[in-house]
Simulated assay, not measured.
Amino acid sequence: MQQPVFLVSGLPRSGTSMMMKMLEAGGIEIVTDHLRQADDDNPKGYYELEKVKHLQNDARWMHYMRGKALKVVSSLLFYVPLSLPYKVIFMRRAIGEILASQKKMLDSRGEDSNTVSDDVLRQKYETHLEKIQDWIAARRNVECLYIEYAEILKDPLAGARAVQEFLGQPLQIEAMAAVVDPDLYRNRVG
Rank of each mutant, 00 (worst) to 15 (best):
M1F: 12
Q2T: 15
Q3G: 12
P4V: 11
V5M: 06
V5C: 12
L7M: 13
S9G: 05
G10C: 13
L11D: 02
S14N: 04
G15I: 00
G15P: 08
M18C: 06
M18G: 02
M20A: 00
D33H: 09
D33C: 07
L35W: 10
L35Q: 15
R36K: 14
Q37T: 12
N42V: 01
N42F: 13
G45K: 09
L49V: 01
V52G: 06
H54R: 11
Q56F: 11
N57G: 12
A59W: 06
W61L: 03
M62W: 07
M62Q: 04
H63D: 12
Y64T: 12
R66E: 08
G67I: 02
G67S: 13
K68C: 08
K71C: 06
S75Q: 03
S75D: 14
S75H: 02
L77I: 14
L77Y: 09
Y79L: 05
V80T: 02
V80Q: 11
L82Q: 14
L82T: 07
S83W: 06
Y86I: 10
K87A: 01
V88W: 08
V88C: 13
I89E: 08
R93E: 06
I95A: 02
L99E: 00
L99K: 04
K103C: 04
K104W: 10
L106S: 01
E111Q: 13
S113M: 09
L121N: 11
Q123R: 14
Q123F: 10
E126C: 07
T127E: 13
L129K: 05
K131H: 10
I132D: 05
Q133I: 09
D134G: 00
D134Y: 07
I136R: 07
R139S: 11
R139V: 06
V142L: 14
C144N: 06
L145P: 12
L145S: 13
Y146P: 04
Y146F: 15
Y149G: 00
I152Y: 04
K154C: 01
L157R: 12
Q164R: 13
Q169L: 15
P170W: 00
Q172E: 14
I173T: 12
A175V: 01
M176W: 08
M176R: 07
A178R: 11
A178H: 12
V179D: 04
N187C: 13
R188I: 09
V189Q: 01
